[in-house]
Design a binder for these strands. Structure first.
Lengths: 218, 218
DNA sequence: ATTACTACTCACCGAGTAA
DNA sequence: TTTACTCGGTGAGTAGTAA
């Protein structure tokens, strides 16, 4: 990445005050002329104050310049010192699907990818969970901002099957499975579809309207 | 300052993973096309990994990208959390000057500026101190990296008098004065010249070869 | 809706050089 | 030495548009 304005500001802030354009150019891999211009630009932006002398120039940050650097620093701190492990969880009630899920999961092209990429052969049927609260929907949206395991779409019989995004998860803290979200979803945004290697209705003794808890594994 | 490459990387790092080029463009005040190109550039620099989907793209930092941000963060921390007050001090022995100092300080144009900018009317004579150790010379060089109070040069009688840099200081922890360094210095780099409102030789009872301590007020 | 290609303009870079 | 000007070549930004 080439020498950017901000790099120049930072380099000036590092050095106490006295700099030469040539020295700055060498440090930042640029030319003396460009440094001269960039330093003058920073001055016209009121980020630095300067006084040219016979041997170089005296540069100091203005309050605004210091504030600017501090702002960037806090921004980076936010990123670097961000807690690594957060867990995303939401829940809702079991609703009956249209049988569509079973149809899609049953497509060989999808099925094989589920096995390869998720590590299990899905049961031919999906669990449809309707989210009830805004917190739950928010958590689901946050999940969607994460990088999914993408199941590739395909064409067959003159029909297009789109990509499916999948997110490995725990259901009711007991069973492993995955939330799946078709790229061109037919569902309203408050319903999520879940697959697993087993028939979750049976193995977790779930029936219509029962509460289902979903936790995304990060 | 316009949108730079690093800003794009930081913005991508802030967002967890899912972004669109248009959204990024709005955030950073740029165009969708430029964002598209910049994100692809970051990918080709191996700073991010990405996967484009129908609705936007999933972007995540590579190890190298995270390392890059961390490096910048540490750089800024160094600046922002740098201790504010350091003191610069050095010392040497009193040597006799050539009377040159008296001549220069006596020039009205300089004299008036000393009074205005340093706050005292200098005694017509300078104290010449020869630095003995490399530490002392280093401390003096550090002083020269600070922003001086600049006494402007002038032309008179067909002669050019150059700028003089001055640094307010304490002499022997007792008297206030200033180190002065002519822009075109005649001295070797191990000699500093000091002025004060009084005759320091008298008021501090100094004689040839006596040790003189100089502390710069920051 | 999205990404990203092409074409075009404009601004930036830096060699040469003045002060 | 140093800063900073001019100016020609080039790289960056973006409108239009395809996919």
């Amino acid at each position: 990445m080439k020498c950017e304005m901000f790099d120049v500001l930072v380099e000036l802030a590092k050095k106490k005050t006295r700099v030469t354009t040539l020295d700055m150019a060498k440090r930042l891999g640029s030319s003396q002329q460009t440094m001269s211009r960039k330093i003058r630009e920073l001055e016209s932006l009121d980020l630095i104050e300067r006084e040219t002398a016979a041997k170089g120039q005296f540069v100091s940050l203005t309050d605004e310049g210091a504030k600017f650097i501090r702002k960037k620093y806090l921004e980076l701190r936010e990123i670097v010192e961000r807690p690594k492990t957060e867990s995303i969880a939401f829940g809702g009630v079991l609703v009956s699907g249209s049988g569509e899920g079973r149809y899609y999961v049953g497509q060989d092209e999808y099925f094989l990818q589920f096995h390869e990429k998720l590590g299990f052969r899905p049961f031919l049927g999906t669990l449809n969970v309707r989210l009830k609260t805004v917190q739950d929907v928010k958590a689901k949206d946050e999940m969607e901002n994460m990088r999914p395991i993408t199941i590739r779409g395909f064409k067959k019989d003159n029909r297009a099957f789109g990509d499916i995004r999948s997110y490995p998860c725990m259901i009711n803290r007991k069973a492993r499975g995955a939330v799946i979200i078709p790229e061109r979803t037919h569902h309203a945004t408050d319903i999520v579809e879940i697959i697993a290697s087993e028939d979750l209705r049976k193995s977790l003794c779930l029936k219509e309207d029962d509460y289902v808890h979903v936790e995304i594994r990060i």
